[in-house]
């Protein structure tokens, strides 16, 4: 069981950080629009961070079972192809996860 006090502090911290980020443009729009560094990081970071989170969670999943990471590679490939062509987030996530769960429970 995770301690409730710890969880409440985490939730409060995450809530404050998320709200601050969403509110920033409304209190400091001029500064953000002028600042080239913020603009460039906005161009570079989101895609880099998402890629890192994807690789990190897929690596974590691969380490949870023996053998080569074929289930992870195949399922991620399915999600990417589906999302690229059909652009339906729910469909991509559900089909990708189903394929992965099937491979993990019946093949690996």
């Amino acid at each position: 069981m995770i301690a409730s006090g710890y969880l409440i502090s985490v939730i409060a911290a995450m809530g404050i950080v998320t709200f601050a980020l969403r509110a920033l443009p409304f209190v400091a729009a001029r500064w953000l629009q002028r600042h080239a560094l913020v603009q460039a990081l906005g161009q570079f970071l989101p895609l880099a961070i998402m890629t890192l989170l994807l690789v990190h969670s897929a690596t974590g999943a691969a380490l949870a079972h023996a053998g080569w990471p074929w289930p992870e590679l195949l399922a991620v490939a399915l999600v990417v192809v589906l999302q690229w062509t059909r652009r339906n987030a729910l469909l991509s996530i559900v089909l990708g996860t189903c394929l992965y769960v099937l491979m993990r429970n019946f093949l690996v």
Binding site: L47, M50, T51, L53, S57, V76, Q83, M103, R104
Partner: peptide, 30 residues
């Protein structure tokens, strides 16, 4: 739970990666 159900997280990140990729001129960050 079924083994591998938490893969939904990786799938969500894959979707968000594709959507970020689509809006960028360059795939260099990826």
């Amino acid at each position: 739970a079924l083994a591998g159900l938490d893969f939904v997280l990786a799938a969500l990140f894959a979707v968000l990666t594709v959507e970020q990729w689509r809006t960028k001129k360059s795939a260099a960050p990826l």
